[in-house]
Computed example of a mutant assay.
Amino acid sequence: MSVRTDTPRWIASILSWPGLLPLSRIALVSAFLIGGVQKLADFPAAIAEQAHFGLEPAWLWAAAAVLIELGGSMLVIFGRFVWLGAGGLGVLTAVAMLAANDFWTKSGHDRFMVLNAFFEHLGLIAGLVLVSVLSLRKQGASMQ
């Protein structure tokens, strides 16, 4: 019996390509990888960034950001403890989203820009949730 789908065959072929999921995982965490490397390369600037957003002690927040951005990204990319890596990145993103995108204090064009960034971060968190769901489903399929 064949399964009916609304996805065109050529799209299904692209989505079935074995390399798509690993490349998508890398793309999903790419901003975290770049951010973690930049923070590590210029740790004083990373501390200043955390202090700018009122996160104290700034050195601890900067160290946690580097660890979570690099470590969490590696877990997501390599598909090991994805829930932990994506969860850490999601929490870090939520903290950043609330600290840096305070649209409720803005007006006019500034409010528009910050509100947009807020929801972009929310979308990124949703992507991290989805990669965790996919990982769990893959594990469930291999455990049966």
Rank of each mutant, 00 (worst) to 15 (best):
S73Q: 10
M1E: 11
R25M: 03
G71S: 07
M1V: 10
A48W: 05
F43T: 02
S73G: 15
I26W: 13
L60H: 05
K39S: 04
I14W: 12
H52A: 12
N116I: 04
V76T: 11
W61P: 00
T93H: 00
S16C: 04
A141M: 12
V76M: 05
E120W: 07
G19M: 11
E56Q: 15
L89T: 03
G72L: 06
Q144W: 01
V29R: 09
D42I: 06
L28N: 10
F118L: 11
V91S: 04
I34N: 04
A62C: 03
S142A: 15
A94L: 15
F119N: 12
G85S: 05
L115T: 08
R9L: 10
A141H: 12
L84F: 14
W10N: 05
G127F: 08
A63L: 15
A63V: 08
L130D: 07
D110C: 03
R4I: 08
I47D: 08
A62Y: 03
A48C: 06
A141I: 13
P57L: 01
D102W: 00
A31N: 09
V37G: 00
P22Y: 01
L23C: 13
G79H: 09
F112Y: 11
A64D: 02
F43S: 01
S30M: 13
G71I: 02
I47K: 14
W61K: 02
A51Y: 09
G79M: 07
A48F: 11
A58Y: 08
W104D: 06
L136Q: 14
N101M: 11
A12M: 02
I26F: 15
A46R: 01
G108D: 11
A58G: 00
V76C: 02
A46T: 02
L67K: 04
G79C: 03
M97Q: 14
F78R: 15
P18S: 11
A94M: 11
Q144M: 08
F103R: 06
A126L: 09
N116D: 12
S73K: 02
R137L: 13
T105K: 14
A96L: 02
A51M: 05
L115D: 10
H109P: 03
V95G: 04
N116C: 00
P57D: 06
L92Y: 03
N101S: 02
W17R: 09
S13P: 03
G90P: 03
H52E: 13
I125W: 07
W83T: 03
A41P: 00
A96N: 02
G19E: 08
S73I: 01
P8A: 09
M1K: 10
F118Y: 14
T7Q: 06
E49G: 12
D110Q: 13
T93D: 00
A45S: 15
A62H: 06
V129P: 05
